[in-house]
């Protein structure tokens, strides 16, 4: 798998998926600022390598839980941007028929639980998914994505402890983007690395460069294979940086300028492009073609979503009960 995982087609795919997330998010940002799109948004720019690296280590039948910032996870796990864009526009054709919106995107048929927008709330659910895999002797893995803030929630403790004592096939992925909304991580926790918290549960914790998609993939694959083979859960801390606002219209005044500049220079897509070009197996033309095809895909999604029908108002009453 290692060899195949590093071949240029694989690398181009990871590059393209990261670009797809970035362009999707940038397009959504402008649609939102133009006032065309309803609701609120929490965006993923700068963190693309986390979702893409982790999901590249998963099989189609593995399951993820996501957060209030779910667009990147959904795209990386294979949800089509058409149904996501339609959901953002509140259209009947959206992945949740307009009932979820940005913060609850998902599609269980793709292994994505509708995103849980309560910080930490998805973690016990991921533990239960992993429990069902173990009880049914299925070789599947549950991955819980979370931000740094979730590790200060009680649900984090309960979910990791249960997954640990039952040796469940789960991977807990912390995207440490250095801020919980506007609060710097250092103000709200004393441990140097969130991964250290794993020791409280007797499980392995690792801190990884979350802006290096191949490093993320390597770490995720080890954790996933360990989980799949009965070795229990892992806590993966991916160090990254959010180069967009926490939510809509956040100008990020709390991010020091120097830090932000360094982070922008270190963002995962440009970094990966440099690496791929330096390796020489892919050329600028390949990357350009990937970017162009992404652009077409996103534009098609926007056009279709804008044409798609809105739900009928009284559809609000549907979908309550089986």
């Amino acid at each position: 798998m290692t060899k195949q995982a590093r071949d240029p087609a694989w690398q181009l795919k990871q590059y393209r998926t990261m670009v797809l997330i970035r362009q999707f998010e940038e397009r959504v940002k402008y649609l939102f600022l133009e006032g065309v799109m309803p609701g609120t948004i929490h965006q993923y720019q700068g963190q693309e390598a986390c979702a893409v690296g982790v999901c590249a280590a998963l099989d189609a039948h593995d399951v993820i839980t996501s957060t209030h910032r779910p667009h990147g996870h959904c795209i990386a796990k294979g949800l089509d941007v058409g149904s996501m864009m339609a959901e953002l526009f509140g259209k009947a054709t959206g992945c949740c028929k307009g009932k979820g919106g940005s913060m609850h995107m998902g599609d269980l048929s793709k292994g994505i639980v509708p995103a849980v927008a309560i910080v930490g709330g998805g973690l016990p659910i991921a533990t239960g998914i992993a429990l069902s895999f173990k009880m049914n002797k299925e070789k599947r893995v549950a991955v819980a994505f979370m931000g740094d803030g979730a590790t200060n929630e009680g649900a984090f403790h309960e979910a990791l402890n249960m997954a640990s004592v039952w040796d469940l096939p789960a991977v807990f992925v912390v995207e440490n983007n250095m801020y919980g909304a506007s609060t710097p991580v250092k103000m709200v926790m004393k441990v140097e690395h969130i991964a250290q918290r794993a020791s409280a549960y007797g499980i392995e914790g690792r801190t990884v460069d979350g802006n290096d998609v191949e490093a993320v993939f390597d770490a995720a694959r080890e954790a996933v294979e360990k989980a799949r083979s009965g070795g229990g859960p892992t806590l993966l801390e991916l160090e990254t940086y959010r180069i967009t606002g926490h939510s809509r219209r956040d100008p990020c005044l709390y991010q020091p300028e120097e830090e932000r500049k360094r982070a922008v220079a270190n963002e995962p897509i440009g970094r990966y492009a440099k690496k791929l070009l330096a390796e020489g197996r892919l050329g600028e033309k390949d990357l350009e073609a990937a970017r162009e095809s992404v652009k077409a895909e996103v534009e098609a999604a926007v056009e279709k979503a804008q044409r798609d029908p809105l739900p009928r108002p009284e559809d609000a009453l549907e979908d309550m009960w089986v």
């Binding site: 533990t127 998914i129 429990l131 069902s132 895999f133």
Partner: peptide, 25 residues
């Protein structure tokens, strides 16, 4: 083992039941 005894973790066990239910249990 179909009686799953949990730690004292009500949020955890409720979420775990939900997760298992989502998988068809």
């Amino acid at each position: 083992e179909r009686l799953v005894n949990t730690p004292i973790s009500e949020a955890g066990l409720t979420g775990a039941a939900l997760g298992a239910a989502l998988m068809g249990m």
